[in-house]
Design a protein around this nucleic acid. Sequence first.
DNA 1: TATTTGACCAAGA
DNA 2: ATCTTGGCCAAAT
Length: 112
Amino acid sequence: MKKQTRQCTEFENACYHIISKVPPGRVTTYGEIAKALAKRGYSKNASRAVGGAMGRNPFAPKVPCHRVVCSNGKLGGYNGGLKRKISLLGKEGVLVSNGVVENFGSVLWKFK
DNA sequence: TATTTGACCAAGA
DNA sequence: ATCTTGGCCAAAT
C-alpha cells in the first residue's frame, strides 16, 4: 500500500473521540470540544485547531463532524458541503434554518 | 525551521 | 445588529 494519507495525530484523535460522545439530536461547538480537550491536557483555546482537525482529515463517516457547529449557533463548515451537514442534522432532529441552528441552546451538548 | 492558514471565540467600535 | 481586531492553537506548506 502506498500513499497512506497522513497519519492522524493525537490531537485529532482526541477530537474525534470527544465528538463521538455527542449523541444524535445534539450538537456541540468547537469551543466546547476545546474545553473538553483542556481536560485531556490540551489548551482550552484550541477551538481553531479543533476545526482544523475536522476540515483536514476525516470527512469520513467515521466521525460525526456534522454535529459540530460554531458557538454562535451557526453551522461553521463541512467537508461534504453544508447542505449535507444540514441534512444530517435535520435527520437527527436538529433543525437548521438560514444556516443557523434553531433552539441552539437546547440542542447544544456540553461536556460535563 | 519559519510562515501561513483555518470548519473559532470574545470583545470593541 | 454587523464589522473589525486581537488572540490562541495545532497542522500544513
